[in-house]
């Protein structure tokens, strides 16, 4: 895109600047729209699993429900509790929302359709997702209220615990792909199994890693069955209890943008990203971003399906799963995968 703006007669630096801004807008605006629609989809899926109708009043089939909700919270008054730490209280939702958007810079939507094609894309995602916990902690502390604080403590412990095993799972993928660049990781999955199936998930050594990654990404985004941070029956609404108006909306948007990001990561790292499922020339006629979006949507359906059907974990069970099951198993798989790759001479 930089070249296009250079052709319009700009200097390289200005062209780079303008094209980067355009790239950010091209990702962020559709993402916000997607988040609004995906909230609607989420509610529809839960509704149909609970034999209800779900949102069906605003617009055709209730399609405009999220926009109506958005308008409603926009018009509400922003309430800052008098005992709250005002600065942090207002910064916290901004942090959450910004971090939720930042990771999308390195997600490839199609071959080469990526905002920042950097060598360390996967590490960048790990770094940004490890920052995500601050929005929650700051909100919990700055609210100066019991329930948000409990929630913040739960959230930080939970996210740190599951990031460890996510790190090991990603190392297995990186070992097999031989690169941290996400676009190259997608290319490495082309014809991965029998030369015809695209995707690491069909690999017997990486399939268990994908299952663990799916579960860990549920825990990382605090979705059911790991939604202990906003367990309604115990913590009112968790760290968002004291928030109202747009600050509350920023949390919602950030949360769903994170969920979509995790779906995109599942699709990109294990299911071949923008590659079609099978390495057959006919399937390449469909543009890559269609495959990518289909996969993301599929994983989002899995996320809502789980939320609609699975009861919440208890806190000690959550910690047990993270530290006593996922951590040793993922560590074992790092050893097995690297041993297999060394034995078969994959690195030559």
């Amino acid at each position: 895109m930089t070249g296009f703006f250079q052709n319009l007669g700009m200097s390289y630096e200005w062209a780079w600047f303008v094209s980067t801004i355009c790239g950010i807008l091209l990702i962020a605006l559709p993402l916000m729209l997607a988040v609004a629609m995906i909230i609607y989809v989420d509610r529809k899926i839960w509704a149909s699993m609970a034999l209800r109708r779900g949102p069906n009043v605003v617009g055709p089939f209730g399609l405009l429900q999220s926009f109506a909700d958005g308008l409603k919270v926009f018009l509400q008054e922003t309430i800052v509790p008098s005992a709250a730490n005002k600065g942090l209280f207002l910064i916290a939702p901004i942090v959450t929302f910004t971090l939720a958007l930042l990771s999308w810079a390195v997600i490839p939507f199609n071959s080469g359709a990526i905002l920042a094609d950097i060598n360390i894309g996967l590490l960048y995602i790990l770094a940004i997702s490890s920052l995500g916990v601050y929005g929650t902690i700051m909100a919990g502390w700055a609210s100066n209220s019991k329930y948000p604080f409990f929630s913040a403590m739960r959230a930080s412990a939970q996210m740190i615990s599951y990031e460890v095993s996510i790190g090991f799972i990603l190392i297995c993928v990186v070992l097999w792909a031989g690169t941290f660049n996400i676009n190259d990781i997608v290319w490495a999955q082309k014809g991965h199994v029998f030369g015809i199936i695209n995707g690491f998930v069909a690999n017997p050594l990486l399939f268990p890693m994908w299952v663990m990654f799916l579960i860990s990404s549920l825990a990382e985004t605090q979705r059911a069955p790991f939604d202990l941070t906003e367990a309604e029956s115990e913590l009112v609404a968790g760290y968002q209890t004291e928030y109202s108006s747009m600050a509350f909306a920023a949390y919602w948007l950030g949360e769903y943008a994170n969920v979509l990001l995790m779906c995109a990561l599942n699709a990109t790292l294990f299911w071949g990203g923008w590659l079609p499922p099978l390495d057959i020339p006919v399937l390449y006629l469909v543009p890559g971003f269609v495959w990518f979006l289909l996969k993301v949507f599929f994983f989002f359906f899995v996320f809502s399906w789980i939320k609609a059907t699975v009861p919440r974990y208890r806190y000690d069970q959550l910690m047990r799963l993270g530290w006593k099951v996922f951590l040793p198993v993922s560590l074992l798989f790092v050893v097995i995968v690297s041993g297999y790759l060394m034995a078969t001479g994959h690195f030559q």
């Binding site: 790990l126 770094a127 490890s130 740190i160 990031e163």
Partner: peptide
Amino acid sequence: LVIVYVGA
């Protein structure tokens, strides 16, 4: 630095 110091 970000992952280890900031994140953990």
